[in-house]
């Protein structure tokens, strides 16, 4: 198992796509910074000030922590799930397509260990991506926007029901928590992609199917028409990671959804192992 893990790690660190994902995240942060500046300028000056006396989005509202939070929330909607899908979706199917899977599977190793090591490496990739992204956002936020307290109000980020504030040091710790909760939520996508990777022999198909499933449920879950179905979508449960940014962390709720996501992840992994063990490698 350890040998497999080392092997998978080496492959991960030697893959060009691994570094590419970090580059794309840097580009995304730059885009976010641009958007943030223009949005903040629009909301804290000119017409907005003339028309309304009070705004929550005042100058002190927009700081590096708010920037990092906006950036993280937006990237979590699409970008990070796509990267995780790509990383996990190509794990088995990519090796099958390249022919290296049969090379590995003729070795005296159990297929279950192979799946598990690939999953762990994907999990590590997700954690690294998230840590890097959050760290980068905080640094960029500090340098370009400046730090302050993290102010929250209902609406734009759909985080809170009532306005609230998280003091700077506490907010920084919350970003730390979000690496854990975010990675844990992303593992559901990773497990789903790994399952697709075992079912389909083409990595592209595995990745597209995962992203399609994620996006469909994500979008459908936000259309009011399907409001009653929403609780049954894994995308709804995945949202729990944002709870760490509520002024009062609803721990009980957080643990409930973390466990639900964990059940999805382990269930999907179990299915992946069972299917992969029975799969005929004919590629």
């Amino acid at each position: 198992m350890l040998t497999l893990l080392k092997l998978e790690l080496e492959k991960l660190f030697r893959a060009r796509s691994f570094y590419l994902s970090f580059l794309v995240l840097i580009a995304f942060v730059a885009l976010m910074l641009w958007g943030f500046y223009t949005y903040a300028a629009r909301k804290t000056g000119g017409e907005a000030v003339e028309q309304f006396k009070y705004t929550y989005e005042s100058k002190q509202y927009f700081n590096g922590l708010t920037f990092a939070l906006y950036s993280l929330l937006f990237s979590f909607t699409l970008l990070l799930p796509i990267f995780v899908s790509m990383s996990a979706g190509s794990q088995i199917a990519g090796e099958a397509r390249g022919g290296t899977l049969r090379m590995i599977c003729t070795r005296p190793i159990s297929r279950a260990s192979l799946v598990l090591s690939k999953f762990l490496v994907t999990a590590l990739h997700a954690a690294l991506l998230l840590s890097f992204f959050i760290g980068l956002n905080l640094i960029v936020g500090l340098i370009f926007v400046g730090w302050g307290n993290l102010e929250l109000y209902p609406g734009p980020l759909n985080l809170v029901d009532a306005p609230g504030k998280i003091m700077r040091d506490d907010a920084l710790m919350r970003f730390g928590y979000s690496v854990l909760s975010g990675t844990w939520a992303l593992l559901v996508i990773a497990a789903l992609a790994l399952l697709c990777s075992v079912v389909f022999d083409s990595p592209a198909q595995a990745i597209v199917m995962t992203i399609a499933a994620y996006l469909t449920l994500y979008i459908v879950g936000r259309v009011e028409f399907f409001e009653h179905l929403r609780p049954y979508f894994f995308t709804t449960d995945m949202d729990f990671w944002r709870d760490v940014f509520k002024p009062e962390i609803p721990w009980r709720n957080l643990w409930h959804y973390a466990c639900t996501c964990g059940a999805y992840t382990t269930g999907l992994l179990l299915a992946t192992v069972v299917i992969f063990e029975r799969k005929d490698i004919v590629t």
């Binding site: 409930h256 964990g262 382990t266």
Partner: peptide
């Protein structure tokens, strides 16, 4: 086999956890 057993155990644990914290 042990991988499947561990996963099954974790799966059950997560379900129990989810139910427990749902109250």
């Amino acid at each position: 086999m042990w991988v499947k057993l561990i996963l099954l155990l974790l799966f059950c644990l997560m379900i129990v956890g989810a139910v427990h914290f749902a109250q």
